[in-house]
């Protein structure tokens, strides 16, 4: 896979929310190119627009203006079926609140996207168990989310995100509801996946633990891209953060 291939391209994206008479401009013109196979962190203070951008890239919400391209396809041009297909096959989502389906077991949660993708039941179960093994939950596949700890639930969510071998994993504060060490485990897991399966991981976060593993960090402030730093430039700002805190 060449590094010049842009799997995600965000072009002049703005997003306004109309709250009664007041308009909140959450994104004020974002331009971003994300190379395939990288581990990207989108960093920024609370309210800076990370989740909003996450929703745009994931095709979960529509920009007010501007375009989002996945694999150089403008997702605004996709019809409902193609969009569903994109969400099912191309992108794996991980949320701060895990968002597992509470009434389903860990295994059923992981196999659901495979069912949507048309995989047969036996194959899906087999792959689901493999994926749960991969995230270290091989023996817990019969458990409901309410019977699992936060970290375990997030692992199930990671396994679910991998169900259809997506090229992109989008994670919105995947460690936001986890303690320090569990958060580190999830980060390590994501990093491993991005390296071994060359999945592009895009993670919105304000968790500085993420910086160590990122190939690129996009700093967002007040709905705009503040700066984009590659791995080698990072140590400088890391040093700064270290002294600030």
């Amino acid at each position: 896979m060449s590094n010049t291939h842009n799997i995600v391209r965000v072009s002049d994206v703005t997003k306004k929310f109309q709250l009664g008479k007041v308009a909140v401009e959450a994104l004020k013109g974002i331009n971003l190119e994300i190379a395939a196979g990288n581990y990207i962190s989108i960093m920024g203070p609370s309210g800076s627009g990370k989740s909003t951008l996450f929703n745009m890239i994931g095709g979960l919400d529509k920009p007010t203006s501007g375009k989002v391209f996945i694999d150089e396809v403008d997702i605004a041009q996709l019809d409902a079926y193609e969009l569903a297909w994109l969400r099912c096959r191309k992108i794996g989502y991980i949320f701060q609140t895990f968002n597992l389906i509470q009434v389903m077991t860990a295994l059923e949660n992981v196999t659901l996207p495979m069912t949507f993708a048309g995989m047969g039941n036996d194959a899906a179960v087999k792959k689901g168990i493999q994926l749960l093994d991969l995230v270290g939950l091989g023996d817990r596949f019969r458990h409901k989310p309410s019977e699992l700890s936060g970290g375990q639930q997030q692992r199930v969510a990671v396994a679910r995100a991998l169900a259809n071998d997506p090229s992109i994993i989008l994670a919105d504060e995947p460690t936001g509801n986890l303690d320090l060490s569990t958060g580190e485990e999830i980060i390590a897991l994501l990093k491993e996946l991005s390296r071994e399966r060359s999945v592009t991981v895009i993670s919105a976060t304000h968790d500085f633990k993420m910086l160590n593993v990122s190939d690129q960090v996009v700093w967002i402030r007040d709905g705009r891209v503040d700066k984009i730093e590659d791995r080698d430039e990072l140590s400088i700002s890391l040093g700064k953060i270290g002294t600030k805190e």
Binding site: G58, A80, R87, Y93, N99, L112, P113, F116, R160
Partner: peptide
Amino acid sequence: FREIGTMKCLGALDRF
């Protein structure tokens, strides 16, 4: 609602 939203993120169509 959350369950429905999650299913849609996983690729469910309205009619599912």
